[in-house]
C-alpha cells in the first residue's frame, strides 16, 4: 500500500509539473498550447545530447535543457500565437497552429534522432535504493518528486508575490484592465510561455530520466494525461492542476495494482468523467468569466 502510494506520488509529480505549465498558458490566453508535449520531448532530447554527447554532468545539463525549453516557448508564442492574436477565431486557430508547431517539432526530432528509443548513458544518475517505512524508492524517484514540488512551489510564489506574477494574473483575468494598468501585455504573455515551457521541459527531462526512454512521440503519452489533469483541476487553475496531477498518478498506480495495467487509462478517464458530472468546472475552476 505504502509502496503504491509512493509510486503514485512519483508519477503524479511529473503529471502535475507538465500540467501546471499547460494550464498557465491556458489561464493567460484561453488557448490550449498543443505543442506543450513537443517541448516536453525536445527538452528531454536536449538533456540527452548534453549528457551523452557533450559529456556534461546531469546537474548542469538539466538547467540548460530547461532554459532551451523556455526559449522554445518564446519561439512558439511568436510563431504560433502572436500573429493570430486579436482575431475573432484566435482560440481555434491558435489550437491548430500550436498543433502544427508541435508536429514540426516532432518531425525535426524524428529527423535528428530517428524513431527508436534513446537512452541516457549508464551511470547518468547514481543507482541507489532508499527504504522509507515499508516502501522503497530509488534516489532518482525521490529527487524527481522533490524537484517537481520545488518547481511548483516556486511558480506559486512567483504568481502570488512578484510583480511579474501579478501582471500574469492581471492579463489572465482581463487583458484590457492589464493594459490600462500599464502592463505590456505582449511581453507578459511571452514571459508566461517561457515559464510554462520551462516547466514542461523540466517535466520532460524528469520523465525521460524516470523511465530512461526518449522517442519523438514520448510527449504524446503525457499530452492526454496533462489535458485530463488540467480539466480535472479546473482550466487555468495552478493549484487545481497540482492536486489533479497527484490524484491521477495515484489513481493510475492503484488501478494497475488492483485490476491490471489494461484498465489504467479506462479508470482514470472514468474518474475524470464522474468528477466533471459533479463539478463541471473541475475541482478548482474559476466561476468568473474572463473579460475581453
Amino acid at each position: 500500500m505504502g509502496q503504491q502510494a509512493l509510486n503514485g506520488v512519483f508519477v503524479g509529480s511529473i503529471y502535475a509539473l507538465f500540467a501546471v505549465g499547460y494550464t498557465l498558458v491556458f489561464g493567460v490566453l484561453d488557448i490550449l498550447n498543443l505543442a506543450h508535449q513537443a517541448v516536453f520531448m525536445l527538452a528531454a532530447f536536449a538533456a540527452l545530447l548534453l549528457v551523452a554527447d557533450a559529456h556534461l554532468p546531469l546537474w548542469a545539463a538539466m538547467p540548460l535543457a530547461v532554459l532551451f525549453a523556455g526559449l522554445l516557448g518564446i519561439l512558439l508564442e511568436r510563431l504560433a500565437f502572436r500573429p493570430l492574436r486579436g482575431r475573432a477565431d484566435s482560440n481555434i486557430s491558435g489550437l491548430i497552429s500550436s498543433l502544427a508547431m508541435g508536429t514540426v517539432f516532432e518531425a525535426i526530432a524524428l529527423q535528428i534522432f530517428g524513431p527508436d528509443t534513446s537512452r541516457f548513458p549508464h551511470g547518468t544518475f547514481p543507482d541507489r535504493l532508499i527504504r522509507i517505512g515499508g516502501a522503497s524508492a530509488s534516489l532518482l524517484q525521490l529527487c524527481i518528486i522533490a524537484i517537481s514540488v520545488v518547481l511548483m512551489a516556486l511558480l506559486t510564489l512567483l504568481l502570488a508575490r512578484t510583480r511579474l506574477g501579478r501582471q500574469i494574473r492581471a492579463v489572465a483575468e482581463s487583458p484590457r484592465a492589464a493594459r490600462i494598468l500599464g502592463v505590456n501585455v505582449d511581453r507578459v504573455i511571452a514571459a508566461a510561455f517561457f515559464i510554462s515551457s520551462s516547466l514542461g521541459g523540466a517535466a520532460g527531462v524528469l520523465f525521460a530520466l524516470a523511465f530512461n526512454s526518449i522517442s519523438p512521440d514520448v510527449g504524446r503519452s503525457v499530452e492526454l494525461k496533462g489535458l485530463a489533469v488540467i480539466i480535472l483541476g479546473g482550466m487555468g487553475s495552478i493549484p487545481g492542476a497540482v492536486i489533479a496531477g497527484f490524484a491521477l498518478g495515484l489513481i493510475e498506480v492503484f488501478t494497475v495494482a488492483g485490476f491490471g495495467s489494461s484498465y489504467r487509462d479506462a479508470v482514470s478517464f472514468a474518474v475524470l468523467f464522474v468528477v466533471l458530472l459533479a463539478r463541471p468546472r473541475g475541482l478548482l475552476g474559476q466561476a468568473a468569466a474572463r473579460e475581453a
Partner: peptide, 8 residues
C-alpha cells in the same frame, strides 16, 4: 466600467 481586477 472601472476595470477592477476582481479576482485580486
Amino acid at each position: 466600467g472601472r476595470a477592477i481586477l476582481g479576482r485580486m
